[in-house]
């Protein structure tokens, strides 16, 4: 099992990063996705925090899957997730108070991120700890990439900076609406449009080559 499954493990990981990307394909965990992506650095921190909670709680859920009675499983998952979120919450507060204030209540709201509960229920509860954690890591990375894609676009358009560094000259007029709430909806909508356009184009192109 341990020797032959390298490609399979890789597949498991990439599943979350690309094919089942939580942000762009499954459209899960929308609240933090839209709320904290006003800048790239916020987006990355949120993604990493979620990644940590996701991997740890999926590992623990998977370890405890034989002792968890079916009737109370959701409650058990929620308590496990809430424990890790509390830890992350205090950790971020200790590391960077500015970041803590920028993310606000959304760190604690990781508890109700549907991606985590969804992964725990759909994957971790049925698999051994190792594959479960790899799958969770893939999802977490996919989520981080999704957040980053939104954060980068919104920061560049809305503030003219990237990671706090000014990109344009002084004459740049920021497109303020992009860092305000409506911008979040518009940018995510635009990304989804782009992906569906791309997904539709590919088969057409292949068909054209075959003819």
């Amino acid at each position: 099992m341990s020797t032959a499954d390298t490609p399979q493990t890789w597949d498991e990981f990439m599943e979350g990063v690309w094919r089942q990307n939580p942000v762009f394909v499954m459209v899960l965990g929308m609240c933090p996705t839209l709320a904290v992506t006003v800048s790239a650095i916020n987006a990355i921190s949120m993604g990493l925090a979620t990644l940590f909670v996701l991997v740890c709680s999926c590992g623990l859920v998977s370890l405890m899957r034989r002792f968890t009675p079916k009737e109370v499983r959701i409650a058990v998952y929620i308590v496990i997730i809430a424990t890790f979120v509390t830890a992350v919450d205090y950790a971020i507060q200790a590391i960077s108070l500015a970041l803590y204030e920028a993310l606000g209540a959304f760190i604690q709201l990781i508890v109700v991120n549907c991606i985590i509960l969804g992964r725990a229920e759909a994957h971790a509860a049925k698999n051994a700890p190792m594959p479960a954690m790899i799958n969770a890591a893939g999802m977490g990375v996919g989520f981080t990439i999704g957040l980053l894609a939104l954060g980068v676009v919104r920061e560049i358009l809305g503030a003219g900076t990237l990671f706090g560094v000014a990109l344009f000259g002084a004459g740049f007029q920021p497109w303020v609406i992009m860092v305000l709430p409506p911008g979040g909806f518009f940018v995510l909508g635009a990304w989804l449009l782009l992906f569906s356009w791309w997904a539709r184009r590919r088969p057409l192109k292949e068909a054209a080559q075959n003819v």
């Binding site: 459209v27 909806f185 518009f186 909508g189």
Partner: peptide
């Protein structure tokens, strides 16, 4: 348009609603 059907359309709508709520 076919391309915009589904979630993308809902998100654009939500954006416009959000704009008016501002």
């Amino acid at each position: 348009p076919d391309l915009a059907q589904g979630t993308a359309l809902s998100l654009m709508l939500a954006g416009i609603l959000s704009l008016s709520f501002m």
